[in-house]
Design a binder for these strands. Structure first.
Lengths: 149, 149
DNA sequence: AGATTAGCTATGATAATCATAGTAACAAGT
DNA sequence: ACTTGTTACTATGATTATCATAGCTAATCT
């Protein structure tokens, strides 16, 4: 009775992470959340995923403790999704992915798709993991992103 | 005629990366390659993926220019897979995933599953992105990993 | 009353993934 | 010469995930 086999996450930390974020839709949802979006409909229109995919992936992320589902109004009852601390710390993974793609998948001469500025010192961080100006490590919340037209 | 919809990779670098590494088996294959393994059978026994999954994922990785398929002997003709420069640079993504899981998915009091030592200065780097001893940024090749029993 | 909004669930079709087996080309042992 | 083993896969048929599309519920808005 075949079904989707689970990968062995008993020892390897990469396997454990892969079990959480090793999925296209999950990554796109997280991208949206790191851009400050938290509503089901936002996810749907910005990722292009079907409602079932979203419902399923959001359930998984909730079970993994990466996002929390919370009501933001009572009448009518509406829910939104927020990153937990565990979820916010995934920023390093998404940021590494962004840096890699900007390095290797960008058209020649094209500007960066997203520019990040270090809030603390105001400097553009380029594709670095530490601020090229003040040397500090960059985490979620330290950066302000702006999309290049 | 529904089939697996492709995610929109036209603008967002995270989407571009997700298109390459947003898959469990792909990530496990890359993990193996970063541990120096390069043969089909190694991938099969260490990831638990079926031969079709491996063949498919290795094809994709090759198409994306992340790995290269090359003969390592002629009689009988045998192939192996090697990371390209583009592939080696994905180390930052896998390393971020490793760090995240060690931080958030590790049993209390348990040691790190993998310990990395900075070759240049011989120091354990813990879960940092820059060497805590000499401050250098850590890339593939700079680190020597050892698995904790 | 009818339309609209938000956050989903239901349906039926199709494609990805599964477990298992088998193939091709050679080498090595008996 | 014949079996056995190795490596890198492909083939088969069953099952599951994912798809596009539609619908639902509870409330507010006009």
């Amino acid at each position: 009775m075949p079904k989707r086999t689970n990968i062995d996450t008993s020892y390897c930390p990469v396997a454990k992470s892969a079990d959480v974020v090793g999925d296209r839709w999950t990554l796109l949802i997280l991208r949206e959340m790191f851009f400050g979006r938290c509503r089901f409909d936002d996810f749907q229109s910005n990722t292009g995923a079907t409602p079932q995919m979203l419902a399923d992936r959001l359930r998984q992320l909730t079970q993994h403790g990466v996002v929390a589902r919370e009501p933001y109004q009572q009448r009518p009852l509406r829910y939104q999704y927020e990153l937990t601390d565990k979820g916010k710390d995934l920023f390093s993974v998404l940021y590494a992915m962004r840096n890699w793609a900007e390095r290797w998948c960008r058209a020649e001469g094209a500007p960066l798709a997203i520019q990040y500025t270090h809030r603390a010192c105001g400097h553009d961080v380029g594709l670095e993991t530490t601020c090229p100006n003040c040397g500090e490590e960059l985490r979620y919340g330290d950066l302000k992103g702006s999309i290049n037209a």
